[in-house]
Design a binder for these strands. Structure first.
Length: 342
DNA sequence: GAATCGTGGTT
DNA sequence: TAACCAAGATT
């Protein structure tokens, strides 16, 4: 660590002591580390997800399952339903698996290398938990850090190829002590000052160190162009009997895997659905909903029928007055609203 | 290494 | 408003 690197971490930590955000899963600067369960849970939820979106889910999970042992004992469908709406459902599937591993171990692993073995815990999350919950000096690189470091050192190589050099620079400015506070300080800086668009350089404690400061910081980090998003078409099927609707549980690890859902015609990221209903009958279109996923958009047509018989597809009758508790992902919650709105 | 995997807020 | 983006992991 050069003198300049040292100044960066020192000045950032000083800024953090005065400006740290107060977040439910976080200890105040300099305070004892929070419960590893809280740190882990928040880090999983925060993957590619905003603080505002996570807050109510974090509170709900902690209320229902106050400990990792309680979470480990919960059935999958309850965990999946509680996660509904937060997105990236493989996180919830891995959350359940990891909880059971930790419960079996008796406690959370305390090193970056051991944490990295938990399902759903990758390079970033292992480093973050090790630093924040256990005080290990780990190099924590998330999208905020990538942006801040790209600007600090005016890295012109585009992401994702620049990841290696970004990590090297991050390692150089990571202090031996308070690595957890340092990581959180970098993330606070990235989310509130060194923002993607319109960075607030006048408020930045690191501006005097920033090589991009006199250029155009908002142009960093450079990024490879992204592919265009196709529009797919599909159908979902609303099968109603008395005051219940037939819900399925989606299989596998693909789109919305493990989540309760309306039956559909097999639409996917690869192509349109078949438009073939699950059985012959009198189907009427109740309307359509548009939904945008990460790599494609979907126009979903919602087909409705009434029946007295048990559909031949695996599923369950779900009472309409308890539909909120089914834990439908947002796409199907939208479809349900469309039907029920008439 | 590139694709896959959600959602809601911001600009 | 369409595009961009967020405390990434997995295959």
């Amino acid at each position: 660590m050069t003198a300049s690197d040292n100044a960066i971490s020192t000045e950032l930590l000083d800024w953090y002591d005065r400006h740290a955000r107060d977040l439910p899963w976080r200890a105040a600067p300099g305070q004892p580390a929070p419960d590893p369960y809280r740190v882990w849970l928040s880090e999983i939820m925060l993957q590619q997800t905003t603080v505002a979106a996570v807050k109510p889910y974090f509170a709900k999970f902690l209320h229902i399952w106050p400990t990792v042992e309680a979470l480990a004992a919960a059935p999958d469908d309850q965990i999946m339903a509680a996660w509904a709406g937060l997105g990236y459902y493989s996180r919830a599937r891995n959350l359940a698996k990891a909880a059971r591993v930790v419960a079996e171990l008796g406690a959370f692993p305390e090193t970056e290398a051991e944490l990295r073995k938990l399902p759903g815990v990758g390079d970033y999350t292992a480093a973050a938990i090790a630093a924040i919950a256990f005080g290990e000096r780990a190099v924590v690189v998330d999208a905020n850090v990538e942006r801040v470091v790209s600007r600090l050192f005016a890295i012109e190589e585009p992401l994702p190829k620049s990841r290696k050099v970004i990590r090297t620079h991050t390692d150089a400015i990571t202090p031996e002590c308070r690595a957890g506070d340092f990581a959180q300080a970098m993330m606070d800086l990235g989310s509130s000052v060194c923002t993607s668009r319109s960075p607030q350089c006048l408020l930045c404690p690191l501006s005097r160190h920033c090589e991009a400061r006199m250029a155009e910081p908002e142009h960093f980090p450079f990024k490879a162009p992204k592919k265009e998003k196709p529009i797919r078409a599909g159908q979902a099927y609303w099968i109603e009997r008395e005051q219940s609707v037939w819900l399925v549980t989606r299989e596998g690890t693909g789109m919305l895997g493990g989540m309760r859902a309306l039956p559909d015609d097999g639409w996917s990221a690869k192509g349109d659905g078949s438009s073939i209903p699950p059985f012959d009958g009198e189907w009427a279109e109740a309307g359509s909903v548009s939904h945008s996923f990460t790599h494609f958009s979907l126009d979903l047509s919602v087909m409705v029928t009434r029946t007295e018989q048990e559909p031949a597809i695996k599923g369950e009758w779900w009472p309409l007055d308890r539909l909120e508790q089914a834990g439908l992902p947002t796409l199907f919650a939208k479809a349900a609203r469309r039907v029920l709105a008439g």
